[in-house]
Design a protein around this nucleic acid. Structure first.
Lengths: 339, 339
DNA sequence: AATGAAATTGACAGCGCTGTCAGCTCAGTT
DNA sequence: AACTGAGCTGACAGCGCTGTCAATTTCATT
């Protein structure tokens, strides 16, 4: 790499102390405008770039956020990364990604290590990690700053960003009811993944609200994967009195439903309506394209990073609970029930 | 965070100098076994974790690799990340992700900044960034170590990892020919994305090899996206003498072909065979599931990180060119041509 | 037991920055 | 004109580690 100018070089050229250069670089107050300009000119002339390692060591912060996840959905993870990164860049932070296993024994230790090595200043936890009590507890005890995406438990512990999953699932169920469906199958999400399971509550609430009896045979336990969705669909469609609509807790499972129906020669959406949740890319790449719920994942992650950075700056973020709204996207896979 | 033990604490407890502790921590040779054990015990007792920022500053390396990409495929990016991370963890490195715009004016500057700030020790470039001459040139000049995934140009410049895209596309085309198809439509990839465009050469080679005349109307220019695939398919299927098989340069475009065919009521695979490339998740989530080519992306990225780390360790990696093989996956979307 | 080479260990000087704190400058006051 | 306090600036001491190099120990040989 090119010989790099240090803060001393800049100070010498600008005719000030290196501390003043530091002030200018860090946008600190109490520097006369004229001085600021002199320094800025010197920085430009030398093409000076502060060394991150040096400032990390001296200031005891790394200007790096860690992003923790354990989610099989590539598009979800990419969106979270994109949102977090956008904020990070604006604030001069970098993002370290740290996929991990939510059921690992050493999860908490592994994550704490990141902070203990001073690799990251704070962490963003995404579901299902945001609901692991031991991990959350460990971070609180070690006083590692962190923000959670969509936690369902222990919300007092720290800042979080959330969506109204339950409400959106309620709305989606109502939509299907409005289309005349009375037997609506539901495929629940992975039990370890609390945020997804919340959607089940929305489904239940909508049935209740509309005085439909709850039929246990219409609810299948899925595991968030395409394959599990397909298996659940097979069972639902085998029912003597099969549902005319199936609402899956996520798009991957909904895609599984659609494949299973295709293989059975069921015409969609006329003979079967299908709804999903998440609006992953597959939702509009399958036939029929999927009616689903879009979450503002990028924005949520961006907000989370923002809260975290505020927290790091010491601006007491009084446990702010940013709640963001989902939106139903009606596509081809839902249709009026046939008489 | 918990009060952290420093190297001095460990040295004091073990009764050695901090340099010796440093040697043990870094697995350097020339430390007596007994000493090593004493130190190890002290480290364990104090739960000592070296500060990354301090060692970065002192050793002038960050133990972080940067991953550069500009690829709309979430699953591709996730796979690359996973592969690179696996290697990084084994070697004690972290991974900084850096999505960017391949057509940005300031791309080279932006990327060089990462190294100049000593945030990363080296870079992994993925297509289409691996083919941007200016960027590659800039890195070489600035002496930033880097490794490329699937470069098609200037291969002498530095280590790279590659797949035999062209050969795989050749094989896939032959497979369609064997199924009796003689009019095989082809949807080319984004012209900026060299690695994808190589697949076109494989298609051409197969036609030539089998003495089929090249029909220009059967080749459409796509842009790697689902929508562009669908548009190209529409044009191909509108042809008076429409193809009986369509080979798209990637799965997203192939998914577009399948949707377009569905909307036209074309029965697949009997009336139309479709083939893709990449084996993205959508390939087996659509109906009919897609015959495609699987690249060992995770392995490639892992290998790339490995080469890069070797390079950083000064072990002269004499421009090693790891070439890895693709595999055709036959699924439901391809079928014998109808007489 | 003396000898020399190799193995092992430690002292020390930074790496390039930021935090602390003291000192200086300069309006606005009295 | 002297005084005040806010605004501005700089000296300096680390942050916790690694690289260098010299000192010491070890061990096989003679």
């Amino acid at each position: 790499m090119v010989a790099k100018a240090t803060i001393d070089d800049v100070a010498a050229l600008a005719g000030v102390s290196m501390k003043t250069v530091s002030r200018v670089v860090n946008n600190e107050p109490n520097v006369r405008a004229a001085t600021r300009e002199k320094v800025a000119a010197a920085i430009a002339a030398l093409d000076y770039r502060p060394s991150q390692s040096a400032r990390s060591l001296a200031a005891n912060r790394s200007y790096v956020l860690g992003l923790l996840y354990d989610n099989p959905s590539a598009s979800y993870v990419i969106d979270v990364q994109a949102g977090a990164l956008a904020t990070c860049r604006r604030a001069g932070y970098d993002l370290l990604i740290h996929p991990c296993k939510h059921d690992s024994e050493e999860l908490t230790q592994e994550v704490l290590l990141l902070a203990r090595q001073s690799r990251v200043d704070g962490l963003i936890l995404t579901p299902p990690l945001s609901d692991i009590a031991e991990l959350v507890q460990g971070l609180v005890e070690a006083q590692v700053p962190f923000v959670r995406l969509s936690p369902t438990e222990n919300k007092a512990a720290c800042p979080y960003v959330q969506t109204n999953d339950q409400e959106a699932a309620y709305d989606m169920t109502c939509k299907l009811l409005e289309l005349g469906h009375t037997r609506i199958g539901f495929i629940a999400g992975h039990p370890d993944h609390k945020a997804v399971t919340e959607r089940y509550l929305g489904y239940l609430a909508a049935l209740k609200e509309n005085d439909l009896r709850y039929d246990r045979t219409l609810v299948e336990q899925g595991y968030n994967s395409f394959d599990s969705g397909r298996e659940c669909a097979a069972r639902l469609l085998d029912l003597p009195d099969a549902p005319t609509a199936i609402f899956a807790s996520n798009d991957d499972m909904a895609a599984g439903v659609i494949i299973e129906a295709h293989h059975r020669g069921i015409a969609m959406p006329v003979e079967l309506s299908v709804a999903g949740f998440d609006d992953t890319p597959v939702a509009h790449q399958i036939f029929p394209s999927l009616t689903t719920v879009r979450q503002p994942i990028v924005e949520m992650a961006g907000k989370a990073a923002e809260l975290l950075i505020k927290l790091l700056k010491g601006k007491s973020v009084q446990m702010p609970a940013a709640i963001m709204s989902c939106r139903i996207l009606e596509r081809e896979s839902t249709h009026q029930v046939q008489p």
